[in-house]
Nucleic acid binder design. Structure first.
Lengths: 262, 262
DNA sequence: GCAAAAGTGTTAACTGTACACCCATGT
DNA sequence: ACATGGGTGTACAGTTAACACTTTTGC
């Protein structure tokens, strides 16, 4: 027989006072992209009681801007602050909410959520995506679920709960589209990186091979890179030069785009 | 002394049962673009009791997808159905809500809204924009405010209530960005239109003069136009040819974009 | 016939793409 | 020394931008 655990006060409070503390029927979900060993990954929670993956998400406090709620979720799960975070879509299919998920969570503690509890209503969620440096993340335990986030391959995201897989796919699609006119990499790569590493990132996101030489010319042409006088030694073969992003120019390109279009 | 009017049942019900019918603290606001006499306009409501312009907006019914709520607002205000409608941003600044607007509306009927009424809370709004054919719109009276929408110039949108001006500006910015890789015009122009008319539309949105000949070549190159064997007569000077959009190809371009990018 | 607007064509500049060649490094 | 990956250069093709000329129409 399953051992009956003691419920965490925060979880209990969520049930009892959540409707007073949070914006009703609204949540944020974060698709947090990272890049490691030439694979694009996202942070996900292993939700044990339903045996599925979930996106890290949270509720919006009364009087809290949504962006701040998303940043808070990111901070809670990764310890990372001040990161690029972008809203990309609102998901509002009335059947997307699955009250049984909440029921399963509280069932562990022998609690059955009443039908009229605020958690049982239909939820609309605002999707955010973030790009973060894999090496900087210390996934931390959350009070709510006592779970750590884990990195999972973008290619292995079946078995996600509710509509979370669709949310990730939409985030990926948005990321791909933005790649054409927005700089990418600052938050996905370590401070110093090589041109081949940057190229791999692009190739991974676009799922496409790119010409080494033309890629380099184009990137340099954007004028957002600083070439350093160091090389990445240790690897076999010729040591590639290291680069950093030119912060000012990177930020400007983020706002104004890489091209002027018309 | 001001004449005391009789309140419309729908308005009364909004106050009393709104929290049962609608998603709490959430709304949609629509920036409805139209194009007439070479000027880009949006539909706005003249909110008499506060003497400001407002975007047509509404609440989201329990169990209604947000897109459907936006489409409903559009239909209620313009009589137009099945139109291009796109979510572009969520506005959630905690200070954006202005309860006094609601108070003013009900004050006309001698009603003071209690502080704990659902309308008095902070609202988060989801911004949608639509592009519609100016000539097809019959602005209709709404039950809620007994007001008609009016077309106002994009250049004259000071004096909007709350953060509605910022919402319009963001919509415009989004529209401009999308212009580069998405077809535009189908819903902003009459069925049949001339190349100079289409060009004027682009010039207006981009706020920029374009070369007549290169514009024509580019547009034709997209392959989304049908050239008709008719000309727009009556105007002074040479009669320009009429075009229609090729619906199939237009729809495909909407989904896949005008370019393949990478 | 003239001014203004529209249709059609041409050329030069630029950008992107496809390659070729050389260099550095570990085995 | 050679295989492999990285740095640099060039030439061709395709696209875009700039501009000239002709045609139609109302006054």
């Amino acid at each position: 027989m399953a051992k009956k655990l003691t419920i965490h006060p925060a979880l209990k409070q969520l049930l009892e006072k959540g409707d007073k503390q949070f914006q009703s029927g609204l949540s944020v979900d974060c698709v947090i992209f990272g890049f490691h060993e030439n694979v694009l990954k996202i942070l996900a929670l292993d939700v044990k009681y339903i045996n599925k993956w979930a996106l890290p998400g949270g509720f919006i406090k009364i009087n809290e801007p949504v962006e701040q709620a998303a940043a808070r979720v990111l901070q809670e799960r990764t310890g990372v602050n001040n990161i690029f975070l972008q809203q990309f879509e609102v998901f509002s299919n009335p059947t997307r909410s699955d009250a049984s998920v909440h029921q399963s969570r509280y069932k562990e503690f022998g609690i059955k959520i009443p039908k009229d509890n605020w958690l049982m209503q239909r939820f609309i969620t605002i999707g955010y995506f973030a790009l973060i440096d894999f090496t900087e993340v210390k996934t931390t335990e959350s009070k709510m679920d006592a779970e750590y986030c884990e990195w999972i391959d973008i290619s292995k995201l079946d078995n996600m709960m509710m509509d979370h897989q669709a949310i990730v796919l939409k985030a990926l699609e948005t990321l791909r589209t933005q790649l054409a006119y927005t700089p990418i990499g600052k938050n996905l790569l370590p401070k110093k990186f090589t041109m081949p590493e940057l190229q791999k990132l692009y190739e991974t996101i676009l799922d496409k091979k790119l010409d080494r030489r033309n890629f380099q010319r184009r990137m340099l042409g954007f004028g957002i890179l600083n070439k350093l006088n160091e090389t990445r030694k240790g690897g076999a073969h010729k040591a590639p030069f290291l680069y950093t992003f030119n912060d000012k120019k990177y930020q400007r390109a983020l706002k104004e785009g890489l091209y002027g279009s018309w």
